Computed example of a mutant assay.
Amino acid sequence: MHDSSDVLSLNKVSEHVTFIGAGYVAMELATFLAAAGSQVTILVRGKHVLRHFYQKYSAELVTRMVQRGIQFKFATEATCITQLSDKYVVELNQGSSLVTDYVVNASGRTSNIEKLDLSAAQIDYSPKGINVDQHLQTSVKNIYAIGDVTSQDVPNLTTVAEFQSHYLFNSLEKGLSQPINYPAIGTGVFAFPQLAQAGINPDSVSEDKDNFEIVEYELSQSSLYAGQKEKGLLTVVYDKANYIVGVSEISTSAVNDVNYFVPIIGLRIRKNEWHQNVLPIYPALADKIEGILR
């Protein structure tokens, strides 16, 4: 099997490529390989892709990718992979099999802690990683852990690991004692169309109508989308004080759009405050946001 580094080093694309997994890596690499001419099949262990994203838009992304010829097989796992000459036979849990030219393992990465012998040091851990408190300290005093190796419920992103490292440096070097307080975190999938979000996921508060309002906007009415066939959708989560606390978007420019919302969420800005203090360049991506927040 191959990994993402192998795919990025290819000199030519294969006729048929199979991905095991449907996270960031699979969705992004499948997009550009399909655009380059490969037939692409994605094996999804469960019923959904990108489960940490707004599921309405994750499902919409699947629909758009299927329209581009990418095939998804849900509730499907590879049980055995056999190489026969220049082909691979992938046996599936449903009793069937498929023949492919190239197999990519994009099933996700787990914390690489097996060889650390953490039990000998009496450090608590779980299958998700090393357990840490709000100061990033493990169960053993003066031993800390940051990044993907921890079991914290935060996105496993480079930016998050860097933020943790700065926090830990300030705590240890400067003697600061306050617990870590994560800022608004933006994340995106560079598929086509793009999928991005920051702050609160609408799925997590959809039933809490007393404290949150969820509003969806269709971006195709923007002048920047004039003539485009791709429909853009943006969902904004407002709290009861009318602060923007979360955004999710699927569009050809979702990553850039959501990046504009990250400071709005992090700095706690209301709709009317944005309009009173910000007048972006027109026409530009930020103009869409200005129109929405009026």
Rank of each mutant, 00 (worst) to 15 (best):
71 Q>V: 14
241 A>Q: 13
154 V>N: 11
101 D>I: 04
211 N>V: 03
268 R>P: 00
105 N>H: 08
151 S>M: 08
158 T>L: 12
53 F>G: 07
31 T>K: 00
243 Y>A: 03
4 S>N: 03
9 S>T: 11
165 S>D: 04
42 I>M: 09
280 P>L: 05
14 S>Q: 14
16 H>P: 02
175 G>F: 02
124 D>A: 14
94 Q>T: 15
191 A>N: 03
73 K>C: 07
123 I>C: 07
271 K>L: 07
53 F>M: 11
124 D>H: 12
174 K>H: 13
145 A>T: 05
212 F>I: 10
243 Y>F: 15
155 P>V: 10
2 H>D: 09
264 I>F: 01
150 T>G: 08
183 P>C: 04
59 A>S: 14
75 A>L: 12
106 A>C: 03
132 V>L: 07
123 I>H: 06
83 Q>I: 01
141 K>D: 14
216 E>Y: 05
292 I>R: 10
33 L>T: 07
180 I>R: 09
75 A>M: 10
166 H>M: 12
4 S>C: 03
39 Q>T: 13
13 V>C: 08
278 V>K: 02
252 T>C: 06
246 G>S: 04
266 G>L: 06
238 Y>G: 00
268 R>A: 10
177 S>M: 10
141 K>P: 01
131 N>C: 12
286 A>G: 07
113 I>Y: 04
48 H>K: 13
175 G>Y: 03
168 L>M: 09
163 F>L: 15
57 Y>Q: 11
199 G>F: 05
218 E>A: 15
119 S>I: 07
53 F>S: 08
179 P>T: 11
153 D>M: 11
191 A>T: 02
198 A>W: 00
58 S>R: 02
274 W>N: 08
56 K>T: 15
254 A>C: 05
242 N>Q: 12
197 Q>N: 12
96 S>N: 14
96 S>L: 04
206 S>K: 15
26 A>L: 01
87 K>V: 02
102 Y>G: 06
183 P>Q: 06
14 S>E: 15
179 P>Y: 09
278 V>F: 13
19 F>H: 02
234 L>Y: 03
125 Y>V: 02
244 I>C: 01
70 I>K: 02
280 P>G: 08
97 S>L: 06
283 P>Y: 10
269 I>H: 02
60 E>T: 11
246 G>A: 05
156 N>R: 15
75 A>G: 09
170 N>S: 14
229 K>C: 08
8 L>N: 15
257 D>Q: 13
215 V>F: 00
170 N>A: 14
224 L>V: 06
284 A>F: 07
276 Q>F: 10
104 V>T: 03
62 V>P: 02
264 I>K: 04
21 G>V: 01
77 E>K: 08
164 Q>Y: 06
237 V>M: 00
18 T>I: 04
202 P>A: 13
22 A>W: 02
270 R>E: 08
286 A>V: 06
134 Q>T: 13
211 N>C: 02
103 V>F: 03
83 Q>W: 00
217 Y>D: 06
83 Q>P: 01
31 T>S: 13
113 I>E: 05
230 E>R: 10
255 V>G: 09
201 N>S: 08
201 N>T: 07
259 N>G: 14
292 I>Q: 09
1 M>F: 09
173 E>G: 00
24 Y>N: 10
105 N>Y: 05
274 W>L: 15
5 S>D: 12
174 K>F: 11
112 N>D: 11
159 T>F: 01
202 P>H: 11
81 I>T: 09
93 N>R: 02
20 I>W: 00
245 V>P: 00
99 V>C: 10
146 I>C: 04
86 D>F: 01
80 C>I: 00
184 A>N: 03
